[in-house]
Design a binder for these strands. Sequence first.
DNA 1: AATTCGGGGAA
DNA 2: TTCCCAGAATT
Length: 350
Amino acid sequence: MQEFNTTIYKWYHLNHRDLPWRQTNDAYKIWISEIILQQTRVAQGTAYYLRFIERFPTVNDLASAHEDEVLKLWQGLGYYSRARNLHAAAKTIVNDYAGTFPRSYEEIVKLKGIGPYTAAAVASIAFSLPFPTVDGNVYRVLARYFGLSVAIDSTQGKKEFAWLATELLDKSNPGLHNQALMEFGALQCVPQSPGCMECPLHSTCYAFLNKQVSELPQKEKKTKQSFRYFYYFLLETGKDIFMEKRTENDIWKNLYQLPLVESERELSEQELLNLQIPFLNNDSYNILSVSAEKKHVLSHRIIMARLIRLEISEDSEIRPPLLRVNKKDISKFAVPRLVELFLNDYKLEE
DNA sequence: AATTCGGGGAA
DNA sequence: TTCCCAGAATT
């Protein structure tokens, strides 16, 4: 047990990455990095972290920003509730804690978007409080080394792993302990074909000794996907197009998009040509083009989408919720990746 | 306990 | 294709 920890620490000392959020003790910055890295690889999140910290150096800067700008900085990163919750929590910190990050686990875990993992990460790394971080890396390392075969996504499994992680925690330096264990999982004890021959723990690793490395950790649920059919409309006047905000409790909430008609089933090109356009009060338009079908895969959805370009007259009656946007301002709006791709294609055509 | 929420990189 | 990433909130 002691051997496990000291070996991990030694490995961390030799192999850890020099990441931007490891150069600070600022709880605010640690927090930002942890939210960005939820279900997100370091390689993908780092650039977002740097831009975010540059624009919002303090919690006050973030709290006083408009949500649209926060989402724009988050564009392309996914799981946008993270950005909305981050913004809401910043306001809570400013309003309820006078802009000082709360220093107890109980207060931290109450903040929006902060669950057991993130609360433990901030508490241990920023404040040296004794709470173990149990993330995907930790599940994997512990499951393999100690041979825990209980499913990591079951209630029982979460309890058992949390208990073991608490037992292992070095309370004299919980921040270092947590980061070392996670880094070890991220770089050495990786999900697919880890380098066990070079691993400093292989002589005492249950999974390696019992040839169960590829069987651990165990998971029980697999996500099932369903289809959705999105038909976006690019309404062009001379210099403007139209956009709308997604306000429903659905994917991409509070992001912007091109006017959308969603269908229960796939529509043929002929059906699209005859479609009633719900946001136009008259029918004075020309169909310029119908794009090829684009397949956009999310974790629980497969979205099949097309872009229909319409030329409309300057005096067309547009249903109110649509925003008239000058073409040079389109990039100011936070849009889903799918819409961004359509807009990029459109710009290339021009 | 099950579902939802994004997007990308690696094999 | 499949897996899964420094998970959390909602149902």
